[in-house]
């Protein structure tokens, strides 16, 4: 593996597939960690190492609300119960997470659940800027009600409207819950739910020659 070539700028080596590693010249532990051999097996999902410290802090802040931390990469997934969502949001905002990057929902149709996630980060608190925290909760798929957090983070307003039209999740207490991108007729189909199927051309790669020449897919 070509590693840390910046330490040997004059190396001509047009084809040296495996340059001898120079252990003394390894720049930093951090980049060494990046160059770990590629694991053949799929990686074990865990909480990413750079988030371990934050996890403790968040657990401290959300004490009493029974937060659980789901394995994830690139962000910290904090799951609280629906009843505690508003309280958890308030505490996280006090902690410094001052705006919402994304409000996303996932349809777990097998478990008959929606997961609603508020991805948060901070502008004003520069220590927290480098983290993304997802405050998430599971709700029933049959009665999709979740308290709106627009009152706490105004930046969630349009995101919640979008998830409302895409999934039919009703954000209780949202000031202006109308479809945002879609017309009401299309929004009634709840397009992002898993039971809505997009009709597209078949994915078959093989086709009959005559049928192919007569295709009208354009």
């Amino acid at each position: 593996m070509s590693s840390a070539p910046e330490k040997k700028p004059n190396a001509p080596a047009p084809q040296a597939p495996t340059p001898a590693p120079k252990p003394a010249a390894q720049p930093a532990a951090q980049s060494a960690a990046k160059q770990s051999a590629v694991p053949a097996a799929p990686p074990k999902p865990t909480i990413p190492p750079e988030y371990q410290e934050l996890q403790k802090k968040v657990a401290e802040v959300l004490k009493g609300l029974n937060p659980t931390f789901e394995p994830s990469r690139g962000y910290l997934d904090v799951v609280v119960a629906k009843e505690h969502l508003v309280e958890a949001a308030r505490r996280l905002k006090e902690m410094g997470f001052d705006h919402v990057i994304s409000v996303g929902a996932i349809d777990y149709i097998a478990k008959k659940q929606f997961k609603v996630m508020y991805h948060l980060t901070s502008y004003l608190n520069e220590d927290l800027s480098k983290y993304v925290v997802a405050l998430s909760t599971y709700i029933e798929r049959d009665s999709p009600h979740v308290p709106s957090l627009t009152g706490i983070w105004l930046s969630a307003e349009f995101h919640e409207r979008e998830e409302y039209e895409m999934f039919g999740i009703i954000f209780d207490g949202h000031p202006d819950l109308r479809p945002l991108l879609l017309t009401p007729a299309v929004a009634a189909l709840r397009p992002l739910r898993k039971d809505f199927v997009v009709k597209e051309e078949s994915d078959d790669i093989e086709t009959d020659y005559e049928a192919y020449l007569a295709t009208k897919w354009w």
Binding site: S72, G74, D77
Partner: peptide, 22 residues
Amino acid sequence: VPAGKASARVEAGRGEMFYYVE
């Protein structure tokens, strides 16, 4: 792609571009 979820963000021309992939 093995089961898992991840998010990533970059600074695109107009601002922060964010993806959540599951």
